[in-house]
């Protein structure tokens, strides 16, 4: 994943009306905006923040699942999980590259993540205490990511849209793989079924929160929609996700932990859809602001990897410089 409905974006611009109108006209013609094109400052800033948050989410997202690589229950699952976590790292890499086209460096973005200035999806601040969580994350978290990201494949900013096309293919593979883990559990023993149910109990609501606050509270959504960075509102995407996911839970024989969940035939312009209970937004904001169970551990882990790796990065740089110097000397002789 995992672009959460953008947290705290500031799309304020100062350009002339004429410039803004011309830019908007390009957007309205569905032209892709490329790195060297003129763009409003707010557009650039919104994208830097969104792509950065998205990249950080991929990187931090490696940790909760990485937690099970050494304990995976079979060699097949171990290999699949390793490959999945590696894919997420790859997503982080494409996204950092897409953000770099807007004039920020990966180092700057990393520093912002480690200092707590940059956000990442709050879903990764929940722990993965059981193996079932690996299935549930694939199914619900990658599933929610896909809902968020498919429209991003048509994002007005070219490099972001292209990165998303590649990422989405892998996310849907992750989603199926996660669901398949849960099928094995749900076809298994009573302990395995309980493990799966306990896992959906813990992940259902946080997964719904991945779409971000209600539209009414999502302050900068409107501008992002106008710029076609965003194509659907948070609530629309959340509803699509619920409608797609509830039948999958039923197929598994798992209960969605929402007593107010009810089929409503009049929803979605008469096509039908699910009414659902109220999300605990206090919990959402608490976790976004750093008070989830794993916020501190996630940053501590990332910081440790970064700090412990400093000597390696320095050595690589020093070696490259020595090499270059030797080559110049060689050429001069």
């Amino acid at each position: 994943m995992y672009s959460q409905g953008l947290i705290g974006a500031d799309g304020a611009t100062e350009e002339t009306e004429e410039f803004l109108a011309k830019f908007q006209a390009r957007i309205d013609r569905e032209e892709k905006i490329e790195p060297n094109d003129a763009m409003p400052n707010g557009y650039r800033k919104t994208l830097v923040r969104q792509i950065g948050q998205h990249a950080h989410s991929e990187i931090v997202g490696m940790l909760p699942e990485g937690n099970w690589i050494t304990r995976a229950p079979s060699l097949r699952r171990k290999a699949a999980l390793l490959a999945k976590v590696q894919d997420e790292g790859g997503h982080g890499l494409y996204l950092y590259s897409a953000a770099e086209t807007l004039g920020v460096t990966r180092e700057q973005m990393t520093e912002e993540l480690l200092s707590g200035k940059a956000k990442y999806s709050s879903i990764f601040n929940y722990p993965t205490p059981t193996w079932a969580d690996i299935g549930t994350i694939g199914w619900l978290v990658d599933g929610a990511a896909i809902m968020n990201q498919i429209p991003l494949c048509r994002c007005s900013y070219g490099p972001y849209a292209r990165a998303m096309i590649r990422v989405c293919k892998e996310e849907s593979f992750h989603q199926r793989q996660g669901y398949e883990i849960l099928i094995s559990l749900c076809n298994g023993t009573e302990e395995q079924k309980q493990m799966a149910q306990d896992s959906i109990n813990r992940w259902w609501w946080p997964a719904l929160m991945m779409f971000g606050p209600h539209d009414a509270e999502s302050s900068h959504s409107e501008q992002s929609m106008k710029w076609k960075i965003k194509r659907f509102s948070n609530d629309e995407l959340r509803q699509k996700f619920i409608d797609a996911t509830v039948p999958q839970a039923e197929y598994l024989g798992l209960t969605v932990p929402d007593p107010d969940l009810k089929w409503n035939p009049d929803k979605n312009d008469g096509k039908g859809g699910y009414d659902h209970g109220e999300i605990d937004w206090d919990e959402f904001w608490r976790v976004v602001k750093g008070h989830g169970k794993m916020n501190r551990d996630r940053i501590k882990d990332r910081k440790k990897a970064w700090d412990d790796g400093a000597w390696v990065r320095e050595a690589a740089l020093a070696h490259a410089e020595k090499r270059a110097a030797r080559q110049t000397q060689h050429a001069a002789e």
């Binding site: 940790l63 690589i69 171990k78 290999a79 390793l82 590696q86 390696v312």
Partner: peptide, 29 residues
């Protein structure tokens, strides 16, 4: 090698080390 996954000194190694681990586990299988 897989113990490194997500904790490598640079992102490129977070991709390269799982590759090696996958090769090793594949051969073991």
């Amino acid at each position: 090698v897989s113990e490194w996954c997500g904790h490598a000194p640079l992102l490129e190694e977070d991709l390269a080390m799982p590759n090696m681990a996958l090769d090793m586990i594949g051969a073991a299988r």
